[in-house]
Each structure stands twice: as structure tokens, then as C-alpha cells.
Design a protein around this nucleic acid. Structure first.
Lengths: 120, 120
DNA sequence: GCTATTGTATGATCAATGTCCAACGGTAGA
DNA sequence: TCTACCGTTGGACATTGATCATACAATAGC
């Protein structure tokens, strides 16, 4: 047992589908885009104002970590999260960059946003 | 009434999450990577040998089309499919490129591959 | 007009996933 | 030590999604 879920996967074991599945969610894509600034962000900061429950955010952060996208550092009672940028860039060249380039508004589109199902 | 599902969405209405969700599947990612050669491919060609049912492939092709990734041309009783490359490159610069760049084997990883369910 | 070929439509399963809620567990500060 | 604060855990629930099987539709060739 020993909750291996906590472990961050070796980047070599991360598949492209793993990464794509992880970011194929409005909230997680936003997190990754925010993290792309290279800085470490707190998990409970003012940034993550998605209007979802605390435990839902925990779920998303775990999903990102298990997919090999992020690294979590525990400092006292606050946790900070950051993108594994160098490793990701080496393994999937241009992918993270492509997520942060904006033409118009790729996240929302110009009309009908399916991101609405995050409901609430 | 009027199965709008058949329609190909305007590229401006396509969100990044739409695209990511569409390619966050082993079979559909392979299809897109194959289509990235710029050629049109038949839907029943020898290419698509994923070991899944016909109707499952129809489902995947529809998913890609509805997400704005592909265009289907009906010619007699055979359908050909192609990537909407120019539009996608304009809207999501570098994204399609990033999917086709290979370092090691991004699709399968070096070990334990979840893509194994594409069987065969 | 038949028949084979090439897909699509529909309905049923079964697994995965996003979400909330309630309860719990460390840590920092009073 | 008691109490906030920060975050995780576990269960429950509804929705989505991948798959298959059968039936259907349109076209090309005989």
C-alpha cells in the first residue's frame, strides 16, 4: 500500500496522453497556464478562484502531480506547487509553450463555452 | 431535428479545452498524428488498425470533427478525413507541431504504457 | 434491380471523472 | 495546550465517455 499516489512519476514514464488528459479540463488548464510563469504558487492562494470546493482543488492538484506536470513542495502548513517545466520541455518540446500562446481567447473561444459545466 | 452534430464548428468557436479533450485519447491522438502529414486519409483504410469496432471508430471520427480538428469529405461511398491544419495553426500556434514532435516515444513512454488498451 | 462495400445511428454496458460534503490531520500562533 | 488555518481523505452522486452489437442507409458494380 503506502499510498504511492503521492509520488511524482519519473518524467520518462509520462506519456503524451497522460499529459493531455491532465490538461483537458478547464480548471487544470488554467492552473498550468498560470504556473507557466515559472513561479511557485500556493495551493490556497488568491489565484485559484474557480468557485469549486476545497477538496475538488485537491483532486485537480493531485491529478496534475500524478500526470507528471507539477511538483509540490510542503513548507510548514502551506503547500506550494510548480510546473516541472524543464523536464516537460525536454520530453514534450513546444507543448507547454503552445498552451500559453493566446490567439484571440483560446480558452473561452468567442462563443458558447463548454467550460460551463464546471457549473456552480 | 436537423442533426447539427454533423456540422463542423467554426474555428473561432473552438476552445483549447475542446481540442485537448479530443486528443486526450490514445486512438484519437494517433489519428491526429497520422493526419498531420497533411494528406487526406480514408476512414476505412489500412491505416486505422486499432482493433476496435467500426462504430467505435465512427465515434472517434465524430469526436474529432465536432472538436474542430478534422474535416470530412464524402466522395461516393468512401469518406476521407483530413486535419484542419491551417486553421488550427492559426488559432493554436505550435500545438499540432508539439503533438508530432517525438522525444524518445512520447506516446508510449519508456515503461508501463496506458496506451496499451489500443490493443493489437 | 440485387448485392457487396462503406460507413452511420441507436441502445446498452461499464469504467472513469468532476463535484460536494463531512471528517480528519498537521502546523503555527496565542 | 487550545484554536485557527491549510489541506487531505473517504464516501456518495451524477455525468461523461469508450466500447460493442445490431440495425440501418447510401453508393458502386454486377
Amino acid at each position: 500500500m503506502a499510498r504511492e499516489d503521492d509520488a511524482m512519476p519519473d518524467i520518462a514514464d509520462v506519456t503524451m496522453v497522460d499529459v493531455l488528459r491532465a490538461i483537458a479540463d478547464p480548471i487544470r488548464l488554467r492552473i498550468v497556464q498560470t504556473l507557466a510563469d515559472g513561479l511557485a504558487h500556493g495551493k490556497c492562494g488568491t489565484h485559484w478562484d474557480f468557485g469549486v470546493h476545497k477538496s475538488t482543488m485537491t483532486h485537480h492538484f493531485r491529478t496534475l502531480r500524478q500526470a507528471g506536470l507539477t511538483r509540490t513542495v510542503v513548507a510548514g502548513r502551506t503547500h506550494t506547487i510548480e510546473l516541472r517545466r524543464d523536464e516537460l520541455d525536454a520530453r514534450f518540446p513546444g507543448l507547454i509553450d503552445a498552451l500559453t500562446v493566446t490567439t484571440g481567447d483560446p480558452v473561452r473561444g468567442t462563443a458558447h463555452s463548454p467550460a460551463d459545466r464546471s457549473g456552480h
